[in-house]
Design a protein around this nucleic acid. Structure first.
Lengths: 248, 248
DNA sequence: CGCAGAATTGATACATCTCAAGCTGGGTGG
DNA sequence: CCACCCAGCTTGAGATGTATCAATTCTGCG
């Protein structure tokens, strides 16, 4: 399991690993100070459900470390993941009482939380927060739409390649460098979780990963770590435009 | 083809049919006056491409009447619709130079446009606009996520039923009443456009529509008008939760 | 009337699902 | 320290839903 990085729960926002990408990214020092007053940290264990669809949402939060999934379920049990929450992503929606999706920790997760009401109040006073939130929501909408193309039109092999490429890009974005030649990523999802994300069955996921490995597009290190010998080759398999527009 | 409703291009915002749902919905009279100064109307004919993916976006706009589609295309021609723009929907993204998707008029369309720079300026001054835009973007994100469930996990029959149900709900929301027993909707999409929305082929769309008709779930009036004898029955076919959470 | 784009319908192919049987690796207790 | 256990993974064989290819048949319109 992924370990928490050592992280004091009295962490100063200035040292926060997601400071430059999260909802607080645009805040001036005084605004940050006000956020700091109302923030509190919570940790969740891998596998734990943070939020149940339909529950009251009393807080909103940023993912600091770890990975969580947003999941939607039909009555007969069919489930579709509708979002992958990586460090700096925002959870919850100001102005909405109830959570529309299940939020599940894929690894141990550290969240930076704000009670909803005070946060909404603060949003009214500090436009930098709502500006940044709008920006992030628009980015998420773009990501959701890219995912719609994947779900509607890509083959199983392309879907797997796309998932790996997307996680690799996000991973590297946090480290502020673009994925290049040899890249190693941590993909903390079970085959079943990947299947739920990609609209496939876990057997098909397994077969396609085996095929990509056989063809030398990826290598596996243990069960969760993936080596990408040539990122461009992976991107070709994903069927994405060559000029892969990474815009953040 | 759908006709324009008679609509003076010097229309007063107070009489606008989308006044209470569009990006301007929250504006006070003085804010509205400022918007009114910079707005201008444009019409587009059915079939026309309003915006090409990759083009500069010099304006943002609201759909006043008509229907347009947001479309994403892969190099080999596979296409996926990622959004259906109905009256009151917003097009374009403040702060973004280039359009990420094709926007195509499905019917004749009337748009209420704002040049991007002045609009962005106005957004900074009038929080009611950015608040409303955030709200609308969050709603679109929810819609996109509902669509991800459809694309990833629903059968062809459920997909068709869902599309009809969603359009019926949107249609009735504009008229401020919920779809009940007998409902008639206008679905101005070709079979091919529906296929692109649903991640199917046009033949499969045709077959499933025939099947739903055979089973009495829907009736066709001409090529574009659909009668829904019993909305609940349609919703069952769509596989949606019975308590269909329509939240706007 | 006749044309062209759109829709329907049929026959067949194929990708993915389903069901089922092993395999693997890391943790546990004797 | 090793055998066992079990969740997660892999692989196989066959079923099935949707795509593909190919005719027709509608429908609106010049």
């Amino acid at each position: 399991m992924t370990q928490h990085q050592p992280f004091r729960l009295t962490q100063d926002c200035g040292d926060c690993p997601i400071r430059h990408r999260a909802v607080c990214a645009r805040c001036e020092p005084d605004e940050l100070a006000r956020l700091e007053e109302i923030k509190y940290y919570r940790t969740f264990e891998a596998g734990q459900t943070l939020i149940w669809a339909g529950d009251r949402m009393d807080f909103v939060a940023s993912v600091v470390t770890g990975v969580a999934t947003l999941t939607q379920t039909m009555e007969d049990g069919r489930t579709q993941m509708v979002g992958l929450l990586l460090p700096s992503d925002f959870v919850g929606r100001p102005g909405r009482e109830r959570a529309p999706y299940n939020v599940i920790a894929a690894t141990d997760v550290l969240m930076c939380c704000f009670r909803r009401k005070p946060f909404e109040e603060l949003m009214r006073l500090t436009p930098h927060i709502s500006q940044r939130l709008l920006e992030m929501t628009l980015d998420e909408l773009d990501a959701a739409r890219e995912w719609m193309l994947l779900l509607g039109r890509k083959t199983a092999r392309e879907k797997i390649a796309s998932l790996i490429a997307i996680v690799a890009r996000r991973d590297q974005a946090l480290r502020l460098r673009a994925p290049s030649g040899r890249t190693v990523i941590d993909l903390p999802l079970t085959r079943e979780a990947m299947a739920d994300y990609l609209g496939l069955t876990l057997e098909t996921v397994s077969r396609q990963i085996s095929a990509l490995k056989r063809d030398g597009v990826i290598e596996l290190q243990g069960m969760r770590s993936i080596v990408i010998p040539d990122f461009r080759a992976l991107q070709d398999e994903a069927g994405d435009d060559a000029d892969g527009g990474f815009l953040a």
